[in-house]
Design a binder for these strands. Structure first.
Length: 311
DNA sequence: ATGTTTGTTCCGAT
DNA sequence: CATCGGAACAAACA
């Protein structure tokens, strides 16, 4: 892990399983390779200052590969970092001479070590992804943008609750806000909420420590399982690892994409929550706010009828 | 033709 | 001024 200035450096904080997989594979395969050439495809819109900064990478060797939240960070020197964010449809592929061509290629880094030549390709169909060249200070600024990581062993249910409550919205939305919790995406957040028996529409203000304890545990479980299975590849085959191979976590989804709850056989509900497709089981993930207000209105109704009696 | 999509940022409304 | 939520970014697929 890149060292956070003055902070605990021993805790490894893997987050999004797909990015983690790519980062680890890159680390095993491109260290000490020299950047010989960089080809930017003409159809790729890249800010001119980034284009200029890329030139400063020529002739340098790759020192390390790491990850900050969902960013892949390639360390070129102590003060020079190449940073990728894949967003929805970005890919990093590591190819050799003669390999088949790839779709949606935007930038190719030709790298070489002891005569071994490889092609590091940045591909992006929808072009929501981002490439940056940063110095150490800018990298620290990037790192500081992110909230707590659920895989950080120092995070407690209390700290988790405090972080989530700072955003007054539903729990699903808070979990996806990287400034609050970094690393969970739509699928993993959906599955983590299911495992914790929490309705995705629950207000963060209605959470308690018992719930965040469960959610912390389920989030860690989901992310660790995703990492073990090298991420998830949906039917569109958008995510693949650096060798072009899909992950396996899609075979272990808990509730995402399901029609029937695997635990209780209830019909799974699908709803757009803050614009993101969300699956949940109405039985295993009851809406506590609804129960609460139903109870409350019942109490009020009783009160009114009592008052009427008195009159 | 329309609606859908693994993420993030920006801007208007409150 | 802070915070929230929806639109926008752009392309392929069903």
């Amino acid at each position: 892990m890149l060292e956070k200035s003055g902070k605990n450096t021993k805790s490894k904080m893997p987050e999004l399983p797909e990015v983690h997989t790519i980062t680890q594979d890159l680390k095993k395969n491109i260290l000490d390779f020299e950047i010989k050439n960089i080809k930017i495809y003409p159809n790729y819109k890249i800010p001119s200052d980034v284009k200029k900064k890329l030139i400063s990478l020529y002739g340098k060797k790759i020192q390390n590969v790491d990850r900050i939240a969902k960013n892949i960070v390639i360390e070129i020197s102590k003060d020079l970092f190449l940073v990728f964010h894949l967003a929805m449809t970005g890919r990093i592929l590591l190819r050799q001479e003669g390999d088949k061509t790839d779709s949606w290629v935007k930038i190719v880094f030709e790298i070489e070590k002891n005569g071994d030549k490889k092609y590091l390709k940045f591909c992006d169909m929808r072009q929501f992804g981002k490439i940056q060249v940063l110095n150490k200070k800018e990298l620290e600024l990037l790192e500081n943008k992110y909230g707590i990581s659920v895989l950080d062993s120092e995070i407690t249910p209390d700290k988790f609750l405090e972080a989530l409550k700072s955003k007054k919205t539903n729990i699903k939305n808070a979990l996806l806000d990287q400034k609050i919790v970094s690393g969970l995406g739509n699928i993993y957040a959906t599955d983590a909420l299911f495992l914790a028996n929490i309705n995705p529409k629950t207000s963060t203000q209605n959470l308690n420590t018992n719930m965040t304890e469960k959610l912390l545990k389920s989030s860690r479980e989901i992310l660790n399982e995703g990492i073990k299975n090298r991420g998830s590849t949906l039917p569109d085959k958008m995510y693949v690892d650096i060798f072009g191979k899909g992950g396996n976590q899609q075979n272990y989804f808990k509730i995402y994409g399901k029609k029937v709850c695997p635990v209780c056989n209830s019909k799974v509900e699908f709803e757009k929550i803050n614009g993101r497709g969300t699956y949940f089981c109405p039985t295993c993930q009851p809406d506590i706010a609804k129960d609460f207000s139903a109870k409350k209105s019942k109490v009020e109704t009783n009160k009114i009828s009592e008052q009427k009696k008195l009159l």
